[in-house]
């Protein structure tokens, strides 16, 4: 699972509608993976980015070759330079989580990740 998935997933257990994003990582093993750099894609995706979450994710300990430092203030779409875009690209598309857990900060549901595939299924008492 590339980190972009983490950025667009939220806890969806029944009644869990606030403080359900971002899911909190634990026991993560990750690897660096390849992805083609596409400025067009990143610019299109930019409005969906929660900047604070991205900054926090970029500082996760499991990221190989150290954390990625992004500007504290979210740059305007027009002001994005290639360097920042490449950093966003690296965090969202080139970090591949193989195993670990994601837990909901609100209800505590744990979503396990195995062989790179997060299990987002809900238990029967959690579905609407």
């Amino acid at each position: 699972m590339r980190l972009i998935a983490h950025h667009i997933l939220a806890c969806h257990a029944k009644g869990c509608t606030s403080n359900n994003f971002p899911l909190k990582f634990s026991d993560v093993e990750s690897q660096n993976a390849e992805a083609e750099f596409s400025p067009d894609f990143l610019k299109g995706f930019y409005p969906k980015i929660e900047w604070n979450v991205l900054i926090t994710t970029a500082k996760e300990k499991f990221i190989k070759f150290g954390e990625v430092s992004l500007p504290e203030e979210q740059p305007n779409l027009e002001d994005l330079d290639e360097e920042t875009l490449k950093k966003i690209h690296h965090v969202l598309l080139e970090i591949d989580v193989i195993t670990g857990k994601m837990s909901c900060p609100n209800c505590g549901h744990i979503y396990p990740i195995m062989s790179g595939i997060p299990n987002m299924l809900l238990a029967e008492h959690e579905i609407a």
Binding site: H7, K48, I117, M120, L121
Partner: peptide, 22 residues
């Protein structure tokens, strides 16, 4: 393989997508 960003297990009728327009 470099273009496959994620595979996930869930039921579409109970999906975890944080927002629409993705």
């Amino acid at each position: 393989a470099s273009r496959i960003l994620s595979l996930l297990t869930f039921d579409v009728t109970n999906n975890p997508w944080r927002c629409g327009g993705l």
